[in-house]
C-alpha cells in the first residue's frame, strides 16, 4: 500500500465532504455502511462529490463504477488504486 496515495486520498475525500456536507463527521461514519444513507446525500450531492473528487485527485469515476464506491472504505480503495503517481498540480 502506497502511504502517500493513502494520505492524498484521505485528504481529498475530507475536502470534498467538507464542501458538500460539512455537517458530516467522517470519523463517526461506519466505513463499511452505505455512505449515501449515513451522510444523507441525495443524487445531486453524490454527483457533486464525484466532480470534486475528480478535481482534487484527478480520478474520473465513470458512472458504471458508482457501485464500487458505495461505502467510505470502498471509495478510498477505489481512489487509491487509480491515483496517478504525479501529484495533481
Amino acid at each position: 500500500m502506497n502511504e502517500s496515495h493513502q494520505a492524498r486520498v484521505q485528504a481529498g475525500i475530507r475536502d470534498a465532504f467538507r464542501r458538500i456536507a460539512p455537517e458530516i463527521d467522517l470519523d463517526a461514519i461506519d466505513p463499511t455502511a452505505n455512505l449515501r444513507d449515513e451522510a444523507d446525500l441525495d443524487s445531486v450531492d453524490a454527483l457533486n462529490l464525484i466532480v470534486l473528487l475528480d478535481e482534487k485527485l484527478g480520478v474520473e469515476i465513470p458512472e458504471s463504477d458508482y457501485g464500487q464506491i458505495a461505502t467510505l472504505r470502498d471509495m478510498a480503495r477505489y481512489l487509491e488504486a487509480r491515483l496517478s503517481d504525479e501529484p495533481e498540480s
Binding site: R18, A21, P22, E23, I24, D40, L41, D42, D45, N48
Partner: peptide, 19 residues
C-alpha cells in the same frame, strides 16, 4: 460559509438545504 451550510443541512436535510 461552510458552517452555515452544515447547520442548514443538519436542520433541513439534503432535500431542502441550500447548495
Amino acid at each position: 460559509q461552510l458552517d452555515i451550510l452544515g447547520h442548514a443541512r443538519k436542520r433541513l436535510g439534503s432535500v431542502a438545504a441550500p447548495r
